[in-house]
Design a binder for these strands. Structure first.
Lengths: 357, 357
DNA sequence: GTTAGCACTCACTCGTGTTGAGTGCTAATC
DNA sequence: GATTAGCACTCAACACGAGTGAGTGCTAAC
């Protein structure tokens, strides 16, 4: 059966109606609302065809029609009207980006929060990570007599640090020596290349008193291994309470449990291979069993040439794809220029925080 | 009316029954279950008295009785049996404390998570903060030509750091000078004493090119102001799905929204004045309107002589006070010795993390 | 003071009837 | 041949009422 123009228009009308109302759409309401000027009976025949084609579904015999995942997919790919972002929406995104605190992770979280407000959907994403992960510099700094901080920079500018309180005092000379040996052995290597083997090498290079530095080396190792680990975040999770599809405790429970699991989030964010365009996952396309009744929309963002992250939303398959995609596209496009413009090179990033007793 | 021994026993039986079943408790079940050997009619009379005294409440005329907040309070203060922690429970707490990663914040979160599992309740708390907050040392470290890290230590050992990427290169001499001036002006002051006034003083002391360092100084200021800010956490929030009192989406919504708000959590944690013993908040005693149907149990923990934190649980007023209090007391008592024992002075604390593009 | 007995209350459950939005099919109309 | 009006049919949702059972309070007997 061919999907002619009239069928397309009816499908579109059904989907848009359903997105707004969350109620199965009947032939009469389409007949009245649309500019097709067809009777309900005709619409009914066409809807029957659309169902046969797998684009619509009937929850039960005497109910209206609901779009199938396939229907949504067709809508997203071919039929959707472009949503024009309003001045208000632009303004709130601009405000979020213009955060005066100037810390990248916080800006991202603020933007995510603004997203959640604009779209009324939970926002998920990954903080910016470097593509390379090549260690460019290791620095050991003495905070006080028995406390040292390890600072590791990678070539893209990511900096990680960890604090260690020792039970012995380390001399400036020893620290300098350790510093040099670490840099000699580890600089230029990627995270994957640095394993316990290298750490042992350093320990051997240190000679007799290598043991003493064991805890320092362990620390360096753990800091290195975290350098390009994706940090995943969720914002505005409570937005799911807005949707009638989650008016049931059991369903809320399922989605909360699913989204509480970082592994699941990693799987979802991990579907983003091509870091150039917005990606829409509908139903079965979501790699987490419990979330297959939802849709996910992901967008990449680029803070610098080497520093990229992912942001997106998750919600019921019935969602305002057009609006969400536009907002994500806008963000994806504006991110680098906007941030570069606002912060220039004075881009201050994340705060670290150490308690130490 | 006097609360004689028999009334006490009946009240206790009602409360314990209700804690287990979440169903209003009838006279007949008390008559059968308890060792009082009284008929249902007698129990009925006594329960009527207990209701008159405000210790029990009847949801509706023909229902059994439910403890009132006042009833719970009496139970907690006077009547509760001490719960003996099982070997299993001790073991899981010990395991959480023996975390090999050796980072204090992570250990606290792990313990919180273990708590959540043991008690089947959401856990809230504050990460350790220092009581003094006196700045003992400020250090500016050059990560690369245009990136510096500010490291601020306080007298109790808390270390905070922030990273700044400059749009100009700073010389080692300038950095040293800035370092010295900062330490001269700010060391020994508490967080409250350091305001923008001091920062301006430093800027003046720097002379003509003070402007150039403005962003560095802003950064120092923000790091200082965070040095004794309480970081509040929630673990195992999804435990509330277990309770029949939250089988309704609206109620879940309310508690989620209330607990999502850090300000509310701050208020709750802030009720903990005396840092020596477990505190129980029942019903109206909770300083957040939306949570007044719940109970909160808080305990202090002490990592070192100056470093203290708070951990606790929140849940429906119907909860196993005895068990929760025991577990929190155990934790509160074991924390310092256990941590001191396991980590000695090699107590490594929190990791920081900076991206920087 | 305690208890047995009884009338009463009230949430809850379950079956039934009604309603209304929706369908599919058929026959008439354009 | 496409469109539409009409009609019988379906089925979730809602309201209503009877029945059930766990509970109560009160009273009179023990």
């Amino acid at each position: 059966m061919a999907l002619d123009d009239r069928k397309k228009k009816i499908l579109q009308a059904v989907i848009e109606d359903y997105i707004n109302t969350a109620e199965p759409v009947g032939s009469r309401s389409i007949s009245k609302r649309s500019e097709l000027n067809l009777s309900a009976a005709t619409i009914r025949n066409e809807m029957g065809d659309l169902e046969e084609m797998g684009l619509l579904v009937q929850p039960h015999t005497s109910a209206g029609r609901v779009p199938s995942a396939q229907g949504y997919r067709l809508y997203v790919n071919d039929m959707m009207m472009k949503y024009e972002i309003t001045a208000n929406e632009m303004e709130s995104m601009r405000l979020a980006m213009q955060n005066k605190i100037n810390e990248l992770d916080k800006i991202i979280c603020d933007i995510a929060s603004a997203f959640a407000k604009l779209t009324n959907l939970p926002v998920i994403g990954a903080l910016p990570t470097a593509e390379s992960g090549v260690v460019s510099n290791i620095k050991l700094v003495k905070c006080d007599e028995m406390t040292i901080m390890v600072i590791i920079s990678d070539r893209s500018g990511i900096i990680k640090n960890k604090v260690l309180r020792l039970d012995y005092s380390i001399s400036d000379e020893e620290l300098l020596r350790l510093n040099n040996i670490l840099n000699e052995n580890l600089t230029g290597l990627t995270k994957n290349e640095i394993g316990f083997g290298n750490i042992m090498e350093v320990q051997n290079a240190l000679g007799g008193n290598g043991d003493v530095f064991h805890s320092v080396l362990e620390l360096v190792h753990s800091a290195v291994s975290e350098i390009d680990t994706k940090q995943i975040f969720v914002e505005g999770l409570s937005n799911i309470f807005r949707f009638p599809e989650y008016s049931d405790v059991d369903k809320i429970k399922v989605i909360f449990n699913a989204l509480e699991n970082k592994e699941n989030l990693g799987k979802i964010v991990g579907t983003m291979q091509n870091l150039n365009s917005v990606k829409v996952l509908i139903g079965d396309e979501i790699p987490v069993e419990e979330l297959k009744e939802n849709s996910v929309i992901l967008a990449p963002y680029r803070v610098s040439s080497t520093l990229t992250g992912i942001i997106g939303i998750i919600g019921p398959a019935r969602m305002d794809y057009s609006k969400v995609i536009s907002i994500l596209e806008y963000f994806s496009g504006q991110m680098s220029t906007e941030l570069a413009h606002n912060f220039g090179k004075e881009l201050l990033i994340t705060e670290g925080e150490e308690n130490n007793g």
